[in-house]
Design a protein around this nucleic acid. Structure first.
Length: 936
RNA sequence: GCCGACGUGGCGGAAUUGGUAGACGCGCUGGAUUCAAAAUCCAGUUCAGGCAACUGAGUGGGGGUUCGAUUCCCCCCGUCGGUACCA
């Protein structure tokens, strides 16, 4: 009987569906286990072979946990709002909801094809009004809360208003954009607009002016990576920095908790480090600098207040609000020119380009109260508006960037730290002895920091402060395809929350998805929707991608609940995610926002856990091979890749070519042969007439190959459906695991799959006799057979527990090779083996299980028990090394003592030639492992 | 630039706590089976030298710790991910 995956897989899929095998209940006597995958964005290119990698791993783990007696939640859904669908709509006029639903349907079919044990009744879709009702609801809660730093907890905004009415800002410790101070009487006297402005300073969801990359021609805001060299990547239109009034979330209020709670998580150290670096806690001081001839004081944050005697100038971010005020008439022209330049630079450029030092002098001076000197005020692109206060006191002697800036513009440098006692210490190290620093002279740096902060506080010009690199998240998008804000404004622009019982606020229907004029979201076009009868207007921006994905894992717990984002019973049962599997590309963004939302819901008493994701496994990307042909733009010829050295790189361009046309793709000698060139010309008729230039004497037109993302635009997408069609889902699953460690990135190569396919046929054949009939022997297994079985149980179990699925597949191969060699056909061996393999190859396992005479699903079985007795060895093979180099191997009985081993080795005649007259200095015996003879 | 990860045969990778480097699979070579092919099976396969026994080298490069380093430490190179509006 041949192994026919196509028939088997279809049969068992139906069986599982009919018997509701994958249905998960929120009530169970079993312990719970929640396994979560990062849900996909349903792109138009469909699922490619890279997507399922993590899903397969988590599915294996889920099925394994079920066999071990857990009630396992393993759901799937779609991150359905996003830019690509909107761009597609702009190009084609197809409504994003329509294209998204079509893509979801395709994803669903592709996912089902792979035999995952998802409980599809819990599927979520972030663009579904029944879902985003709750995204909007959580947003409103953020809007209605402020963060009380005294109790480290979010509190209702009404309590803050009451406090203001009774005591003003007195006794308030709150996370805010800036520090405010007023009395109760002053509060009461304020207008509605003023009160709105003040509350925005405290709300966890608030509006403020922020800078964005604005592209006038495209009429839209661009992401940093859509901007290349100051112009838009699409079309090459100019991009400028523009201030816009936008919603933000006050994630900074939670910075300390986000940092501290990392400790208890079972995440990789690398991941925790990335998060903590992103939060970027630094301890230092806030200092106000007086400005000569002005009442203004410039606020700076510095981690090195000890170096304040060396602060010889100041640098403001070019966007700093006082730039124009502090610019003197003589400097006006220069400053304006510089601001024009900075406007064309993306934040990324400004941070990474450290060699090109740029700046402009404003003409004004601040006063360094410690040296008493006037210090010039500059602007420079290396100071970013949203980092700290957007202004730095520059200490060229102890900061690299300040140093480069001072050298370039010939500014004064005063050495304030003598590092001679600490050879090897760099400019940034907080080490050395203070010099040229008045009362600090002679002190060690750490002591000086303490004293200067005291002094700064005493002088009333600042105080010790903790600062975070983490910035509040901009939450507005001028786009159509996102959650509408449940916010309305009165004629004066005061923001009000919509009534919660009117949620969800549905997206209005539109014909045209292009941005509206004057930097407005497309929603501004839906005038009837925007303008309410009573004169109020709706917010026209929509929420960003991370809105829906910041809480979706909670919705799965109770996906259809109409009365809450999830019912309290369900949340109390499932608690949190035990295992979260997803890509490192989400290491900071998504994981940080989810943690923030979760903590907020925890403060509200709506979730019982402080952290959403207990354990995190990062899956590496499966990359594709990008093949391109080299085209000479002016000569309009294609150049074989090995000849490009003869041409100016500027005149050449790479044109991606479909990998199916390329011979030996991914290899050094990847090329187009005659047929390949013909296919290429048929595919891209615009190049029909172009000449192909070959290397002399060569018939192969070489292509350039590189490893990169699989994407529609690179024509290198490999669809799992095609692989499944040919080899079966079980083979695909095992092959993806076999490729290598889940965490590691690796290129896809379909060629190797034959090995796994051969293995599955071999495994299958163990259950059949020579007449190809299903046949098992009921005789008692030999010790040797039992050893193979129990070694495999041990290896596979250990490896699943440490998420090493590639070595599990190897273990199954090894076991099969050995059992076939032993001619084993015994039920007592093969039955446990089928259970063991069923998480990896669920259809194959089910088929064999039923053929063995069982009626219930193998996936409801109990995991085989390891018996260590069968693993005991009588003898150990010792490698014997001389000076660390292995020379011979010999068997010894397992219970030989170290002393006996040493004596036996010393006496071995075959070892003498390696000792070669030298003396044996030592013999190192590692019991059960190896023996090393040290000679010299 | 900054933060993080990775680098082992022709290829994907294994070596779990510092203890036989290359498990398992692909590919390749030779053979069996076949009219032939596919499929299957057997043997070999890190590199260099040698008919062989064997000898030497070898885990991106350089240095260090150790009886012993793919594994630990320092420096360098390369690739990938993130860098706040791609998802």
């Amino acid at each position: 009987m041949q192994y026919k995956p196509r028939d088997i897989e279809k049969k068992w899929k139906t069986f599982w569906e009919d018997k509701k095998i994958n249905k998960v209940s929120n009530q169970s006597d079993k312990p719970k286990f929640y396994v979560l995958d990062m849900f996909p964005y349903p792109s138009g290119a469909g699922l490619h072979v890279g997507h399922p990698l993590g899903y397969i791993a988590s599915d294996i783990y889920s099925r394994y946990k079920r066999l071990r007696g857990f009630n396992v939640l393993h759901p799937m859904g779609y991150d359905a709002f996003g830019l690509p669908a909107e761009q597609y709509a702009i190009q084609t006029g197809v409504h994003p909801a329509k294209s998204t639903d079509a893509n979801i349907e395709r994803y669903r079919a592709q996912l089902e094809n792979l035999g995952f044990s998802f409980d599809w009744d819990r599927q979520v879709k972030t663009s579904d009004p029944a879902y985003y009702k709750w995204t909007q609801w959580i947003f409103l809660q953020l809007f209605k809360h402020w963060y009380d730093t005294a109790v480290e907890k979010a509190r209702p905004i009404d309590e803050l208003i009451e406090h203001f009415a009774a005591h003003g800002t007195d006794g308030i410790e709150a996370a805010g954009s800036e520090e405010l101070s007023f009395t109760a009487a002053e509060w009461k006297a304020k207008s509605a607009v003023e009160k709105d402005g003040i509350l925005m300073n405290y709300r966890l969801a608030y509006r403020k002016e922020t800078y964005v990359n604005w592209c006038e021609t495209l009429g839209t805001v661009l992401a940093n990576d859509e901007v290349k060299d100051g112009v838009s990547e699409r079309g090459g239109y100019p991009v400028e920095r523009k201030a816009m009034l936008q919603w933000s979330l006050r994630i900074t209020a939670y910075a300390e908790r986000l940092l501290n709670d990392l400790q208890a998580l079972e995440w990789s150290e690398a991941m925790k480090k990335m998060q903590s670096n992103w939060i970027g806690k630094s301890v230092g001081a806030q200092v106000f600098f007086e400005i000569k001839g002005s009442d203004r004081k410039i606020e700076v944050f510095t981690t090195r207040p000890d170096t304040i005697f060396g602060a010889t100038y100041m640098v403001l971010a070019p966007e700093h609000e006082w730039v124009s005020e502090l610019t003197t008439p003589e400097q006006k022209e220069e400053v304006a020119a510089y601001l024009d330049y900075v406007n064309t630079r993306s934040e990324r450029d400004r941070m990474s380009d450290v060699k090109a030092v740029t700046g402009a002098f404003l003409g004004s001076y601040a006063i360094n109260q410690f040296t008493g000197e006037d210090i010039p005020i500059w602007i420079g692109e290396y100071v970013l508006k949203d980092y700290g206060t957007g202004a730095v006191m520059a200490v060229p002697s102890d900061d690299d960037r300040d140093h480069r800036f001072a050298e370039k513009f010939d500014l004064k440098i005063i050495d304030v730290i003598d590092k001679s006692k600490y050879p090897g210490a760099g400019r940034h190290d907080k080490l050395g002895i203070m010099i040229n620093s008045g009362f600090l002279n002679g002190m060690e740096v750490p002591d000086a920091i303490g004293l200067i902060i005291e002094k700064i506080e005493e002088m009333g010009i600042g105080r010790g402060q903790v600062n975070y690199k983490l910035r509040d998240a901009i939450y507005s998008r001028q786009r159509y395809w996102g959650e509408p804000f449940p916010i309305i404004y009165d004629q004066e622009g005061v923001a009000y929350a919509m009534d919660e019982k009117d949620l969800p606020l549905d997206l209005p229907e539109l014909e045209d998805f292009k941005p509206a004029s004057a930097a407005k979201s497309p929603l501004a076009r839906a005038e009837e929707w925007v303008n309410l009868p009573d004169g109020y207007t709706r917010e026209t921006d929509t929420m960003p991608g991370f809105a829906g994905s910041s809480w979706y894992f909670l919705r799965y717990m109770d996906a259809k609940n109409p009365d809450a984002f999830a019912g309290q019973d369900a949340i109390n049962y499932w608690q949190d995610v035990d295992l979260y599997v997803g890509g490192t590309e989400h290491a900071v963004g998504h994981l940080m926002y989810s943690r923030f939302w979760h903590k907020f819901l925890f403060d509200k008493g709506l979730v019982p856990t402080k952290e959403p994701f207990r354990k995190l496994i990062n899956q590496g990307m499966i990359q594709g091979i990008i093949e391109s042909v080299i085209y000479h733009k002016e000569k309009r010829k294609f150049i074989s890749a090995e000849l490009t050295g003869n041409y100016d790189e500027e005149s050449l361009t790479e044109i991606p070519v479909h990998i199916n046309f390329v011979k030996d793709y991914g290899l050094d000698h990847s090329h187009l042969d005659e047929a390949g060139i013909r296919k290429f010309k048929e595919w891209r008729p615009e190049y029909d007439k172009a000449e192909f230039v070959f290397a002399e004497g060569s018939k192969q037109f070489k292509t350039r190959s590189e490893i990169g993302k699989m994407s529609k635009s690179k024509f290198n997408v490999v669809n799992p459906d095609d692989v499944v069609e040919r080899y079966g889902a079980d083979c695909f699953r095992m092959y993806e695991m076999f490729l290598g460690p889940v965490e590691q990135a690796k290129p896809w190569d379909t060629k190797g799959i034959d090995g796994v396919s051969r293995f599955l046929r071999k495994f299958w054949s163990m259950f059949f006799n020579k007449q190809e009939q299903f046949s098992l022997s009921e005789t008692t297994p030999t010790r040797e057979e039992l050893k193979v079985l129990h070694q495999t149980i041990k290896k596979v179990t250990d490896d699943i527990e440490r998420f090493s699925f590639n070595t599990c597949v190897s273990a199954f191969m090894v076991a099969t090779n050995e059992l076939v060699k032993l001619g084993c056909d015994k039920r007592d061996i093969l039955e446990p083996l089928v259970i063991l393999i069923s998480p990896f190859a669920p259809h194959l396992g089910e088929e064999l299980w039923h053929r063995m005479g069982h009626n219930d699903s193998v996936h409801r079985e109990t995991y085989p028990v390891l018996n260590e007795e069968y693993l005991v060895e009588d003898s150990v093979t010792y490698p014997i090394a001389v000076n660390g180099k292995t020379r011979i191997t010999t068997d010894f009985p397992s219970d030989t003592s170290n002393k006996d081993l040493e004596n036996a080795v010393r006496a071995m005649p075959e070892l003498q030639k390696y000792i070669d007259g030298k003396t044996i200095r030592r013999v190192i015996v590692v019991p059960g492992r190896m023996i090393n003879v040290v000679v010299g």
